[in-house]
Amino acid sequence: MATGGRRGAAAAPLLVAVAALLLGAAGHLYPGEVCPGMDIRNNLTRLHELENCSVIEGHLQILLMFKTRPEDFRDLSFPKLIMITDYLLLFRVYGLESLKDLFPNLTVIRGSRLFFNYALVIFEMVHLKELGLYNLMNITRGSVRIEKNNELCYLATIDWSRILDSVEDNYIVLNKDDNEECGDICPGTAKGKTNCPATVINGQFVERCWTHSHCQKVCPTICKSHGCTAEGLCCHSECLGNCSQPDDPTKCVACRNFYLDGRCVETCPPPYYHFQDWRCVNFSFCQDLHHKCKNSRRQGCHQYVIHNNKCIPECPSGYTMNSSNLLCTPCLGPCPKVCHLLEGEKTIDSVTSAQELRGCTVINGSLIINIRGGNNLAAELEANLGLIEEISGYLKIRRSYALVSLSFFRKLRLIRGETLEIGNYSFYALDNQNLRQLWDWSKHNLTITQGKLFFHYNPKLCLSEIHKMEEVSGTKGRQERNDIALKTNGDQASCENELLKFSYIRTSFDKI
């Protein structure tokens, strides 16, 4: 039985969820670079991206490699990797027998973001014989899940209580170790020597080791999670996991709180800001991140802002960003909400898709409305799209047979046209069989910064309504002859009103 693990408890099935942008060198404390989270699957090609990484700022997932063999891993080693800020997950990587050479110096898994409450997941690794993470000293947050690894031993010899604050939620089941077939031998045991430290858990006094050649490092209890030197002297209180010299914040392997210019500090002093819960960055760093993602459509890219001495992905609820200094300031009234469309555009074809934009005031991208039916549609669209004030790209209304009016965009005031449909149009209306009105132009103002209007096959939309939009939106004169079809717009509506004058002759039985 794995020490510190839980057996036999019912657990939810383990679901495996399925960018080499360097964020800056980590400095003297770390020998390499800070790398983003990685999802490495199918083959070993991307694994080489770990070569210079000291910190993975995010998670590391290595999974679904069915053609790899043990010899493929023999020359692979990433000794610079010290810390993973989120979680480490391995799933069905064939041929991998140990992690001792792959990650010989991995010391800390912070667990800032977890995989279903777990910071370390080893699942269905069919050839893994031992973990071998002999320098792993601290899992700051989260638990361990090690399950269905039929060859995995050296679990009962690990004292997880020396690595985690609590072992109650560890789930370590259905491994070879369960069948008591392992016969784990710690260093020196074969020669009758006791080389590794022994600890007591559940009444068992057991030597602690990761492999037959690597003991588990056990520091004096007084050192807590700070770690200790090879001689057993406690590291500085700002260290986490390990250090090369005692009581020196510049000799830590990793930091308990924050890293700044080669030393570990309790908090980031001005003019620095907390970033990702582990390091200090200056304003320029946060500003660069903001600008890199301002026009990016890459998933996970955030326009970072500053709030409460932190550089964070977005302002919290009730705050909006001051564009001059990136500071989050309290909103006066309802907060603006910028919604970034991942692929640059979004099609609204149902109430469900409209709900995804609920509360958005600025759309960074283009909207395509293609709704053919739905219950209580006008009210639903207004509830979900009615706060949109600005669209950076274009607005396209296409084959939306259920629409009679666009009044559900009740606050839309600006279409920038930074991206144009077919390279020309910022407003595009095609084949809307029941569209009769755009907006009530006596109450609604709309500016279209650039781009043209396109109207074709809107049989109940009168040309007068379209011409009014040209005047109000500032697009009059931009359109070419064929942009607004004269014969297919309003051709099934009563669009022309003329005053009919009647004269009559009164007659009676005795007068003409």
Rank of each mutant, 00 (worst) to 15 (best):
H28V: 08
L29T: 10
P31Q: 15
E33A: 05
V34H: 08
C35T: 00
C35S: 00
P36G: 15
P36M: 14
D39P: 00
D39G: 02
D39K: 15
D39T: 02
R41H: 03
R41V: 02
N42D: 06
N43R: 11
L44S: 07
L44A: 09
T45Q: 03
T45S: 05
L47P: 04
L47V: 01
H48P: 09
E49Y: 07
C53M: 00
C53T: 01
S54Q: 06
V55M: 05
I56Q: 00
E57I: 03
E57Y: 11
E57L: 06
G58R: 00
G58S: 01
G58L: 00
H59I: 04
L60W: 00
L60H: 00
L60V: 11
Q61I: 04
I62H: 04
I62G: 01
L64V: 06
M65L: 07
F66A: 13
F66Y: 01
T68H: 07
T68W: 03
R69W: 09
P70K: 06
E71V: 01
F73A: 14
D75H: 03
D75V: 11
L76T: 11
P79Q: 08
P79C: 05
K80M: 10
K80H: 11
K80N: 07
K80R: 11
I82R: 07
I84E: 00
I84M: 02
I84V: 10
I84L: 06
T85S: 08
T85F: 03
D86T: 01
Y87L: 01
L90F: 15
L90P: 00
F91V: 00
V93P: 00
V93S: 02
Y94V: 15
G95T: 02
E97R: 15
E97T: 07
E97S: 11
S98D: 14
K100G: 07
K100F: 06
P104V: 03
P104Y: 01
L106S: 00
T107E: 04
T107G: 14
V108S: 05
I109K: 02
R110D: 02
R110V: 07
G111L: 01
S112I: 12
F115A: 14
F115R: 03
F116T: 01
N117S: 06
Y118R: 04
A119E: 00
L120Q: 00
V121M: 02
I122W: 00
L128K: 00
K129L: 08
K129E: 09
L131F: 02
L131R: 00
L131T: 04
L133S: 15
Y134L: 13
L136A: 01
L136D: 00
M137G: 09
N138H: 14
I139T: 02
R141D: 02
G142W: 00
G142T: 00
S143F: 08
V144S: 06
R145D: 02
N149W: 00
N149G: 08
N149S: 03
N150W: 11
N150M: 05
N150Y: 05
N150Q: 08
N150R: 08
E151V: 10
E151Q: 14
L152S: 02
L155K: 01
T157M: 04
I158T: 05
D159K: 00
W160L: 05
W160A: 00
R162F: 09
R162A: 13
L164M: 06
D165Q: 08
S166I: 12
D169S: 12
D169E: 14
D169C: 05
N170M: 06
Y171M: 05
Y171S: 09
Y171P: 03
L174V: 12
N175W: 03
K176L: 07
K176R: 09
D177Y: 04
D178I: 10
N179M: 05
E181L: 05
C182S: 01
D184F: 13
D184C: 05
I185S: 03
C186A: 01
P187E: 09
G188I: 12
T189D: 09
T189K: 14
A190R: 06
K191D: 15
K191N: 15
K191G: 12
G192F: 08
T194F: 11
T194W: 15
A198S: 11
I201P: 02
G203P: 04
Q204A: 11
Q204Y: 12
F205D: 01
V206K: 10
E207N: 07
R208Q: 10
C209P: 01
H212S: 13
H214E: 08
V218I: 13
C223V: 00
C223L: 00
H226Q: 13
H226E: 06
H226F: 15
C228P: 02
C228I: 02
T229M: 14
T229S: 10
L233P: 04
C234F: 02
C234I: 02
C235W: 01
H236T: 04
S237T: 09
E238N: 09
E238K: 12
N242R: 09
N242Y: 10
C243D: 01
C243V: 00
Q245A: 11
P246Q: 04
P246C: 12
D247P: 02
K251C: 06
K251N: 12
A254I: 03
C255A: 01
C255Q: 00
R256S: 08
N257L: 06
F258W: 07
F258L: 13
F258H: 09
Y259A: 08
L260P: 01
D261E: 09
D261W: 13
D261P: 10
G262Q: 12
G262C: 04
V265Q: 15
V265R: 14
V265S: 11
P269C: 03
P270Y: 13
P270H: 08
H274T: 15
F275D: 01
F275L: 07
Q276F: 14
Q276D: 12
W278I: 01
W278L: 11
R279T: 09
F283E: 07
F283V: 09
S284D: 01
D288M: 12
L289S: 14
H291E: 09
H291M: 08
H291T: 01
N295I: 15
S296D: 15
R297V: 07
R298N: 07
Q299P: 12
Y304D: 04
V305A: 07
H307D: 15
H307A: 08
N308C: 02
C311E: 00
C311A: 03
P313A: 10
E314M: 07
E314Y: 06
E314T: 05
C315T: 01
C315F: 00
C315P: 01
S317I: 08
G318E: 06
Y319R: 07
Y319V: 04
S323L: 10
S323F: 05
S324F: 12
S324I: 00
L326N: 10
L326W: 02
L327R: 11
C328S: 00
C328T: 01
C328Y: 01
P330I: 13
P330E: 15
C331L: 03
G333Y: 08
G333P: 10
P334W: 13
C335H: 04
P336W: 09
P336E: 14
P336Q: 15
